[in-house]
């Protein structure tokens, strides 16, 4: 099984009397030439890394630009002390998404799922549900295989990086993966899972990638929140029996097409959208100034390779 179509993977599961996640697990075993235990253990490491990242978050760190840090902490406090509009569970999801996105921006350990920028979406829905529903670790791993299979199909048919397809490809894909995992954890059918994936991705179609100063900070950290909350909405709709009118593979193909036709300004180049606002530009300018200073300090400690050393290179002056 090549995981190149949701439809084919779902019908393979049906025919073999297996769940979607088992087909994905078997595909990984075959692809990497590993045992079932190896594959499960590697996924367990992923799950533990997600939980660890959430556990060690304190909200004290700040990112290189100083734009990001502490938001997850504020949301955690708000969730604990006030009455959040969307209820306690949604507030926890939001806090988790912010904390993880922030940890990434502050050079902490995270799981890129499917990318580092979108690392908060899956843990944001999985960790609170794990506690709330008292789920077993085995089921969490099965949900992660479900999500990975969805991501693999999206990567094959469309793309999963902001540079290739805009933020719909990163946060959108993460949201679709999370929606599918949620349906599985809430005992929905694989068909419902497919509809949840389609609906989650449809809702974020066209989202541009416009990181301020080219850094994975603004708007990335908060975009993890919309990815997570959108996943909950899509999963709940699917579990309610609502279906996507456009089949899931066609939605994925549409995302790929939108991505390819997205102007380059909206694909991680930091030349459009929020990155090109006056404030976005000012941040970039300020950071550039800092870079100059830092280059100078390194220059102070400069040494030269011996003349006998490797091929000398013509340097352009550090700007």
């Amino acid at each position: 099984m090549n995981l190149d179509s949701m439809k084919d993977t779902l019908s393979a599961a049906r025919q073999e009397g297996k769940r979607f996640w088992e087909i994905v697990l078997e595909a990984d075993m075959k692809n990497r030439g590993v045992s079932r235990t190896d594959s499960l253990n590697k996924m367990a490491a992923v799950w533990h890394a997600m939980r660890e990242a959430s556990h060690v978050y304190t909200g004290e760190r700040r990112s290189v630009s100083g734009l990001v840090g502490g938001q997850g902490k504020l949301m955690r406090e708000y969730a604990a002390e006030k009455t959040p509009i969307g209820g306690d569970f949604t507030a926890q999801v939001i806090a988790e998404a912010l904390s993880m996105g922030e940890s990434n921006a502050c050079m902490r350990r995270i799981v890129a799922a499917p990318t580092a920028g979108a690392c908060g979406v899956l843990p944001a829905v999985l960790i609170p549900l794990y506690w709330q529903d008292n789920l077993t670790e085995d089921r969490m791993l099965e949900a992660l295989f479900t999500a990975s299979g969805i991501g693999a199909v999206i990567a094959y048919r469309a793309c999963i990086s902001g540079a290739a397809g805009g933020c719909q490809a990163e946060i959108g894909s993460a949201s679709a993966m999370a929606a599918g995992a949620l349906v599985y954890l809430r005992k929905g059918t694989d068909e419902q899972m497919g509809h949840a994936v389609a609906m989650a991705l449809k809702n974020l179609l066209g989202l541009v990638c416009d990181p301020v100063a080219g850094l994975v900070e603004v708007p990335c950290v908060k975009r993890n929140v919309i990815g997570a909350v959108n996943a909950i909405a899509a999963a709940d709709m699917a579990l309610a029996g609502i279906e996507s009118r456009i089949p899931v593979d066609e939605v994925i193909d549409a995302m790929g097409e939108v991505g390819r036709r997205l102007p380059v300004e909206f694909r991680e180049t930091a030349l459009g959208g929020l990155a090109a606002t006056p404030t976005g530009k000012a941040v970039k300018k300020q950071l550039h100034g800092d870079r100059k200073k830092r280059t100078l300090t390194i220059k102070d400690a400069r040494w030269k390779l011996d003349k006998s050393g490797a091929e000398t290179v013509q340097n352009t002056a550090a700007t």
Binding site: K42, V46, N104, R109, A112, A113, A152, A155, V216
Partner: peptide
């Protein structure tokens, strides 16, 4: 097929 753990991973420092 793409490595599944390129989708669900890598575990990395941001």
């Amino acid at each position: 097929m793409i490595d599944l753990f390129d989708i669900m991973g890598p575990i990395m420092v941001g």
